[in-house]
Simulated scan of single mutants.
Amino acid sequence: MSRGIEMLRVTLVIVLTAGAANMMAAQQRVVPTTVEQPRPFGYVIGDVVTQRVLLTTPREEFEPTALPPVQRVNNWFVRRASRIEAAPDGRRWLVVDYQLINSPQALATVRLPAWKIEDKAHGTQLDIPAAPLSAAPLVSNSSSSTDVELRPDREVSTVDTDSPRANVLLWSIALGVILLAWLAWLQWRNWRDSYNRPFARALHQLRRMDEMAPEAWQTVHRAFDQTAGRVLQIDTLPTLFERAPYLQPQRADIERFFAQSNERFFGTGAQSNLLSVRALCLELRRIERQHAQ
């Protein structure tokens, strides 16, 4: 009877102990951990590497029960002083430094061990995973140079070329439209100029006339009148050159035109070696265009 009671008591203690352990495990929640591991390659003995653990979680602020102690953590690393730093964005980071204290005989992969840290108030813990690092000897062993431990090739991310191609096509179309618009404007300006300038209009009309006809000479006279802003006679020619000094290089031919025109319309009309009004108008149109530019 007493033996049965004793066995029942032991069973009850075991059940209660297991229940308490389960309750403590249930209360201790593991939350997702953001860890910035050190770069995974390029270390030799004496180098210091740094782990950074984010203490600001989306729901709560993690406050460690204690900072990780300064101690040797395995054959390769010793943990140095730890500290909590605040980033400019307001988040808090636990910063832990490790120093490599051994040198491998050849290039090898060593590990920062995994560890945990608990919160003071909320019963949560952060799990920091292990980090593989490659360490090299200070002096390479030539006999083992053909048997080195290499890291796998890094996967190259694909580059999206669709968007740049679309931009190039869009800007090419825009450039083409601008060039076409500029050419159209240039043609329109030349066309307008050919009809709005006095000697341009006169030259256009002379192409349908006999240059010896009176109408041809009258057409050139109208061009001179429009350029001077008044009706010109041979004695008022200085007004033309005051108004349009760019015609000075052709002054001799212009005076000759007015003299021959005066003789033709108001004199005997019999003349030899007449001036070519089409050639004169063409040269005056060339000067007129240069001045307009």
Rank of each mutant, 00 (worst) to 15 (best):
L180C: 13
A20G: 11
L54E: 00
Q250G: 08
R111Q: 14
A66F: 05
V139C: 05
Q105K: 09
D89L: 10
I178M: 14
L183G: 07
W93V: 02
D210E: 13
P58E: 02
T57M: 11
C281G: 06
F241S: 02
A244P: 01
Q28Y: 11
R230S: 15
P113Q: 01
L126T: 00
I287P: 00
N262W: 11
L232Y: 15
V168R: 13
A81K: 06
A213M: 02
A21W: 15
F224I: 04
P32H: 05
S103Y: 07
P68A: 11
V73H: 13
L94K: 02
M23H: 07
G46T: 08
V15R: 12
L280D: 12
P58Y: 12
A20L: 10
V231F: 13
Q248A: 15
V148I: 14
A130W: 07
S145T: 13
E255F: 00
D253Y: 11
M23Y: 12
I45C: 10
R83A: 11
R207Y: 15
V277L: 01
V96L: 02
I287M: 11
Q218H: 15
E149A: 13
Q226G: 09
N74A: 03
T56L: 03
T109V: 07
Q105I: 07
I254D: 01
S172Y: 00
V35E: 02
T50I: 10
P64T: 05
E288Q: 10
A216N: 08
A228E: 05
I14N: 00
S143K: 15
V35S: 07
F199E: 11
E283Y: 06
S272C: 09
S134C: 13
A135L: 00
D97F: 14
P132Q: 04
S144T: 10
R79G: 07
A20R: 04
G176H: 09
L175C: 05
D153L: 09
S272R: 14
W115F: 06
E118I: 04
G19N: 08
P129E: 05
D193T: 11
G176W: 03
L94R: 03
T109D: 07
G123L: 06
A86S: 01
Y246G: 04
A20M: 12
D225T: 01
Q250E: 14
G90M: 06
R222G: 13
A66Q: 09
R92N: 05
R243A: 14
R264A: 05
A136F: 13
L133R: 06
T34W: 04
D119H: 03
A81P: 11
D97Q: 06
G123A: 08
G46W: 09
P238F: 02
R79P: 04
G229T: 12
L8F: 05
I101S: 05
S157K: 08
E283D: 08
W217G: 12
V70Q: 15
R256T: 01
A86E: 01
G4Y: 13
G46H: 09
R243M: 05
L126Q: 00
S194V: 00
W182G: 13
P137W: 08
A135C: 11
T56F: 02
A223P: 13
Q250D: 12
V44L: 14
T65F: 03
E118M: 03
I14A: 10
